[in-house]
Nucleic acid binder design. Sequence first.
DNA 1: AGCACCACCTGTGGGC
DNA 2: TGCCCACAGGTGGTGC
Length: 273
Amino acid sequence: MPELPEVETIRRELEPLISGKIFVRPVLHMPSTIESPSVEEFSTTLTGRTIENLTRRGKYLIINLDRGILVVHLRMTGNLSYSVNGQPREERFLRVSLPFTDESALHYFDMRRFGRLWLVANREELHTKVLKRVGPDILEEVDLEKFLKLLGKRQRSKIKALLLDQGFAAGMGNIYTDECLHRCNIHPRRQAGSLSRTETEELYAAIKAVLADGIEYGGTTFRDYRNTSGAIGSFQSKLAVYGCKGEKCRCGAKIEKITEAGRGTYYCPNCQK
DNA sequence: AGCACCACCTGTGGGC
DNA sequence: TGCCCACAGGTGGTGC
């Protein structure tokens, strides 16, 4: 479900709502949502902690506490909902409830149960236990020079697979990758090493632009994505290729759907070379 | 290194 | 019209 723009939207909405709040003991409706530590240690350690601020790395939401760090990954269908009176908007798919001392609460819902929460002691553990294989944030930590350098190490990868690889750089998902490659007219099956300098610069610019647009529109709701208050994003109305099989591209050609990197991949066979 | 495939889950919509 | 199964904003593991 959520890619970088959706997680960033949630981060921006949530930060002013929950900064300064103090956790009371969590309610784990589905204990396996907690990846680590043990459910008992998670509950005990989180209780009494104060939220300082919220950051993000790729698709990971990082909730920094006065002692320790709470990390959330929503995977496909996870979503976070803040409730002033502490009541969840519904019981269905409710996996974890994180109540605060002021009676408000943060609720984690997840239909497909892929999402996970972690509680780590410090930055060191954040990187060794959670972000072990996660590359630099594509929006915040990769300038053009670094992008060129990273690409240089992965010349043989197909560009779609590479952009989806969170170890290469973190944040791009299936929707924004397709939109990005369409914007810069690059075929999803091109090998990274085949891109000219100009194409690489255009790709970099397209990544930045499509992610910025996604954030500006509050993310994309293709099926399930909801922001913190349960509202949908609006970037889906701006999608040029994703989910548009058979529809006309701006050039007039029909958008096609193929499988690449194991994912449904939409592109324009006329524009993208 | 890179890639294809499966597993993890539940719901649903496209196609027959 | 109804039913069914391929497929879904992700990732980790395996094996070639």
